[in-house]
Every structure is written in C-alpha cells, then in structure tokens.
C-alpha cells in the first residue's frame, strides 16, 4: 500500500504548496490546513501501513500482537493534529485581524513591516 500512500502524500504536499504560493491570505490558510494532513500522512506512512489492527493489547495478552499497527507514529501524529489545529486557528485569526487592520487580503499589499520604499538607515554615528 505504501506506493499509493506516497502518491497521496505527494498530492497533498503539491496542493498545499500551490495554495501557499497564492497571494491571498485565505488560500494560504487552506494550504496550511492541508500541509498538516500531508505531514501527518508522511509520518504515518514512514512507519509502515498495516490494515485494521489497532495498536491495542487485547484480551489476556501482555504484549502487542504481531501485525498490529505501529503505535509510535500514531502517538506522534495524535499530538501533531491538535497542535496543527491550534496553529491553524492562530493563523486564521492572524489573517483575519490583518485583513481588518490593513483592509486587504493580498499578501503583497501587506507592507507595514517591509515598506515599499524604505528609507536608508542613517550613515552617521
């Protein structure tokens, strides 16, 4: 199954980056959301894919059965999902506030920190 997943991850990354390259904040935000999925699936696939057997030690066993899914990437991804969500929310609010303040949603018109014609620094001491 891994080649299919690799293809899928490639597609997710491509779309995320394509959206990032757009000048519109809202599309960049959607790119960020997709990028989170892309990275999570990347980690998931790198830990190898198995079907349907969750990494739960069942019944009277003391040890995880052979053939169960790899628990380590899942633990990494679980927290990553929550963090990327809160990060996404932060970006969303940031973009929203920037839109309110600057009255534009185009990144190339947001030039407060890097003005278009910035004066040279003073040459004296």
């Amino acid at each position: 199954m891994e080649p299919l997943f690799a293809l899928l991850v490639g597609a997710l990354f491509t779309v995320a980056f394509y959206l990032f390259l757009s000048k519109h904040v809202i599309r960049v935000l959607m790119g960020a959301a997709i990028l989170g999925n892309a990275v999570n699936l990347l980690i998931f696939t790198a830990g190898r894919v198995t079907r349907e057997v969750p990494p739960v030690i069942g019944g009277g066993n003391d040890v995880l059965v052979q053939g169960a899914a790899n628990p380590l990437p899942q633990a990494l991804i679980l927290t990553a999902i929550v963090i990327s969500f809160s990060f996404f929310a932060f970006l969303l609010v940031l973009g929203f506030r920037a839109f309110q303040k600057l009255d534009t949603d185009r990144s190339d018109e947001m030039r407060v920190a890097e003005p278009v014609r910035e004066a040279s620094p003073p040459l004296g001491y």
Binding site: E2, V9, L12, T14, F17, Y18, T45
Partner: peptide, 15 residues
C-alpha cells in the same frame, strides 16, 4: 511547477 517539484520530491523521498 514549483509545488509539483516539491510534492514530487516528498513522494520520491517517502517511496
């Protein structure tokens, strides 16, 4: 093209 290069890179890497 840029994003395809990147995404393709990740795909090859994962493969």
């Amino acid at each position: 093209a840029v994003s395809l290069a990147c995404g393709g890179g990740f795909m090859l890497y994962l493969l």
